[in-house]
Amino acid sequence: MKTINLSEQNTVLNRFVSELRDVEIQKDSMRFRRNIERIGEIMAYEISKTLNYFPLETVTPLGTSVTNVPSDPIVIGTILRAGLVYHHGFLNCFDQAENAFVSAYRKYRENHQSFHVHIEYIASPRIEDKILILTDPMLATGGSMDLSYQALLTKGQPKHIHIATIIASRQAIGYCEQNFPKDRTTIWAAAIDPELNEYAYIIPGLGDAGDLAYGEKE
């Protein structure tokens, strides 16, 4: 299994991540959402370099041109709700991809410090022998990602899994490395942070991505 930390590269992606973390810039929810979308577009471009390609002949007004284009069928699978705008960034790049959505959320116990992840529903095409890109802006423990993947397996076995996140904890990276197929999984992160707090939020992280994108929930 390969883990790619894009923050180790000098790229404009780092500026968008920095703005997502900034407590002042976070007050502009439209800019927050757009930065998530931009990161999705850039990460999709990076993933596109790993796909299989075939030569496509195109007729122009003056002749013909041959261009290598992706041949792999792609399904973009996203965990609701902060993942919606992130998903849109990937779809801007992979505009012919199929789409899957998973409702997964933390169900806190009475002490509000422990929780279990609850899967409510999935909406997905068949994923058999396709490239599955699982997107979630924040990869804190890895539990939601794993359970979402297990739910999607009811639609078939993907050819390859790309786990795409903006900020991951080292704990979540380790969890995914242990629980996803090692020979068919690649993890992509725009940044990897060192730890989780007692509420399983990533430190330094950026806060609650869903609330910052769409407003606070009860």
Score class of each variant (00 low, 15 high):
residue 168 A to W: 04
residue 181 P to R: 09
residue 99 N to Y: 05
residue 153 L to W: 08
residue 154 T to Y: 08
residue 10 N to Y: 12
residue 217 K to C: 10
residue 196 L to C: 06
residue 217 K to M: 14
residue 24 E to K: 15
residue 217 K to R: 15
residue 12 V to K: 07
residue 149 Y to S: 00
residue 34 R to C: 11
residue 173 I to F: 01
residue 186 T to V: 10
residue 68 N to E: 14
residue 27 K to S: 06
residue 174 G to E: 11
residue 102 V to F: 05
residue 191 A to T: 11
residue 1 M to D: 01
residue 142 G to W: 00
residue 162 H to Y: 15
residue 77 G to A: 14
residue 138 M to K: 00
residue 200 A to F: 04
residue 108 Y to S: 14
residue 45 Y to P: 04
residue 190 A to G: 11
residue 209 A to V: 07
residue 76 I to C: 03
residue 192 I to C: 05
residue 217 K to H: 15
residue 38 R to M: 11
residue 188 W to I: 01
residue 203 I to M: 14
residue 59 V to I: 10
residue 46 E to Q: 11
residue 60 T to I: 05
residue 14 N to D: 03
residue 12 V to Q: 05
residue 31 R to N: 11
residue 53 Y to A: 07
residue 21 R to H: 06
residue 143 G to L: 09
residue 32 F to S: 05
residue 145 M to Q: 01
residue 207 G to H: 04
residue 107 K to A: 05
residue 8 E to S: 07
residue 90 F to S: 02
residue 101 F to Y: 12
residue 75 V to W: 10
residue 98 E to P: 04
residue 187 I to H: 09
residue 94 F to C: 09
residue 72 D to T: 01
residue 77 G to T: 03
residue 165 T to L: 03
residue 4 I to C: 09
residue 175 Y to M: 09
residue 20 L to C: 00
residue 63 G to K: 07
residue 152 L to W: 00
residue 124 S to A: 14
residue 72 D to Y: 02
residue 48 S to H: 08
residue 14 N to R: 12
residue 183 D to N: 13
residue 158 P to Y: 11
residue 21 R to Q: 12
residue 218 E to Q: 13
residue 61 P to D: 08
residue 201 Y to R: 02
residue 99 N to Q: 14
residue 214 Y to V: 01
residue 137 P to H: 05
residue 7 S to E: 08
residue 32 F to W: 08
residue 63 G to V: 07
residue 156 G to D: 07
residue 11 T to G: 07
residue 163 I to T: 03
residue 25 I to Y: 12
residue 37 E to G: 09
residue 203 I to C: 13
residue 92 N to C: 13
residue 98 E to M: 14
residue 122 I to P: 01
residue 28 D to T: 09
residue 184 R to A: 13
residue 161 I to P: 02
residue 87 H to W: 10
residue 88 H to A: 15
residue 163 I to A: 11
residue 66 V to S: 15
residue 34 R to A: 12
residue 147 L to G: 02
residue 76 I to A: 03
residue 190 A to T: 07
residue 59 V to S: 08
residue 204 P to Q: 06
residue 205 G to H: 00
residue 205 G to M: 02
residue 86 Y to V: 02
